[in-house]
Design a protein around this nucleic acid. Structure first.
Lengths: 247, 247
DNA sequence: CTATATTTGTACGTATGTATG
DNA sequence: CCATACATACGTACAAATATA
C-alpha cells in the first residue's frame, strides 16, 4: 500500500502519500491508519518523522488523531473548516470591513433566496421552521446562540444545490460569525434578525421568489446597518496580547 | 458560544501562539524565528514538539523552513494562494459542474464589471488594454496562453477594492482555468473570449456601467455555452475523483 | 574546500489519556 | 472502583544531511 522512499523531506513525502491515498478513496472517512509503530515499519522511518507527517495531515483537516486505547489516526470527513478558520482569523485582521462583507452578502444572498423559493421542498421548509423556532427559544431563554442564524443561511445555500455557492456562503457566514462575536451584538439585534428570518421564511413557504429576494436584501442591509452602528458605539478591541512578546 | 479552546496538545498551543504573533504583526514577513534549540528553551519543550509546531505552520503556509547555515524558520508573505489551492482541491473533489461554475460567475462578474465602470482609473484602463493586446499577440502567434484572459477578470475584481470579492474572483477564475485546461478549448473559443473582452473594455473606457454589466453577462453566458458544447463533443463528464488519478 | 550553523532524522525512554474488563 | 492494556504525547541524547560563508 505504501512505499518507503527517500526524497527532500521524508515527512512531507509521507504526508503526500497518505493525502493521495485519501483522495483516491483508498483511505475513506472513518478509516483508521496503522498505529505509529506500524507506520514506522511500513515507511521505514522513525517515530518523529511519522508524527510530523500525521500532524501535518491533522492541521490540514484530513485526519483526526485521538489518543488512548482504541485511539489512533482516523481519516475525517472532507471539510475545509479547519483550514478556513486559520485564514478567516487572518482576514479579520486585515483591512477587511463590515462593508466589504455586506457587499458580498448583498450580491449573493438575495439571489440564493430567490432561487431557493423556486426549488424549496417540504423538508427544507421544515428544517428552516425548526431553525427559526430554535432561534426563538434560545433567544427567550437569553442563551442567544447566534449560530442558528447562520444555519438559516447555510440551509438556503444548500437548497441551491451548487457546491461552489454553498462553499462561498459557508465562508462568508463564517466571517460574519467572527465579526459578530467580536462586536458582541446584543439581544435587540438578535430580535431583528429573527424577525427578518421569519419574513423570509414566510415568503419561501409561499414560493414567492420576488418576495424572498426583497426580504433577504432588506435583511442583509439591516444587519450591516446595525453592526456598523455597534462598531461605532464601541471601540472594537483587539484580541488579547500574545505571550509571544519576547521576540 | 466561544470555542472553549482546550488545547491538550502542547505543539498545537505553540502553533497557535506563533500564528497569533504573525496575525498581530509581532512577527512580520521575512522575520526569522529563533532556531529550534532556542525555541526549546523559550517554550520549555522538547525538540520534537517544536518541530511539530513549525511543520504545522509550514503546511499552512505561514512560515518557510530552510535548512543549512543561515537557514531557519522564516515568516512568509501571507498569500491566500495556498488556502485557495486547498479550497480548489476540495471543490474539484465534489461533483462540480460547468453550470455550477457559470452560475456563480453570472452572479458576480456582471456586478463587478458594473462597479468597475464607475471606479476605474486611467492606470487600470491601461493595464486592461495591455492585457487585451497581449492576449491578441499570443493568440496570433498560436501560443495562446489563456492565463491572460483570467488576468482580465482579476484586474476587474481588484478595482472593486473589496478583499473578499477579490479573493472569490481569484478562486473562481482558478477553477475555470482548471476546467479549460481539462477541456482543451481551441482557438475559435479564444477568439470569442478576446472579442468579448474588447467589448467589455470599450464599455469600461466609456465609464458605461450598464453596458459593462450587459457585455459581461453575455460574455459569461457565451463562455458557458461554448465550454458545454466542447464538453458534449468530447464526452468529458463532470469532474470526478479521477482528477487526482495520477500517481 | 573546509568549517559551521541549522535543520533533518534516529533510537529509546517516560508520561498521559482512554477504553475495557 | 480499580487495574490493565493500548495508543498518542512528550522528552532526551546523538548522528546525519545540507546549505552558506
Amino acid at each position: 500500500m505504501f512505499q518507503s522512499v527517500k526524497l527532500n523531506k521524508i515527512s512531507e513525502n509521507i504526508t503526500e502519500q497518505i493525502r493521495e491515498a485519501i483522495f483516491h478513496g483508498k483511505l475513506k472517512p472513518g478509516d483508521r491508519l496503522p498505529i505509529e509503530k506500524e507506520l514506522m515499519g511500513k515507511f521505514e522511518v522513525s517515530k518523529g518523522t511519522i508524527r510530523e507527517a500525521l500532524r501535518s495531515l491533522e492541521v490540514l483537516g484530513f485526519v483526526d488523531i485521538r489518543k488512548g486505547a482504541s485511539g489512533g489516526t482516523f481519516v475525517t470527513e472532507v471539510d475545509m473548516n479547519r483550514v478556513r478558520d486559520y485564514f478567516t482569523n487572518y482576514l479579520l485582521f486585515q483591512n477587511l470591513s463590515l462593508t466589504n462583507l455586506s457587499e458580498v452578502r448583498l450580491i449573493l444572498e438575495p439571489y440564493i433566496a430567490e432561487k431557493a423559493a423556486r426549488l424549496i421542498k417540504r423538508e427544507d421548509l421544515k428544517k428552516l421552521e425548526e431553525i427559526v423556532e430554535q432561534s426563538e427559544d434560545t433567544l427567550n431563554k437569553g442563551t442567544s446562540n447566534k449560530i442558528e442564524f447562520h444555519e438559516f443561511h447555510r440551509i438556503l445555500g444548500n437548497i441551491s444545490g451548487n457546491p461552489i455557492l454553498i462553499f462561498i456562503v459557508d465562508f462568508i457566514e463564517g466571517l460574519l460569525i467572527d465579526t459578530k462575536n467580536r462586536l458582541g451584538a446584543g439581544n435587540d439585534f438578535s430580535i431583528k434578525v429573527l424577525n427578518a428570518h421569519k419574513r423570509i421564511y414566510k415568503a419561501l413557504s409561499k414560493r414567492d421568489a420576488r418576495g424572498a429576494r426583497i426580504e433577504m436584501a432588506k435583511h442583509v442591509r439591516e444587519v450591516e446597518r446595525n453592526l456598523v452602528a455597534i462598531q461605532k458605539e464601541r471601540r472594537v478591541g483587539h484580541y488579547s496580547r500574545s505571550v509571544f512578546g519576547h521576540f
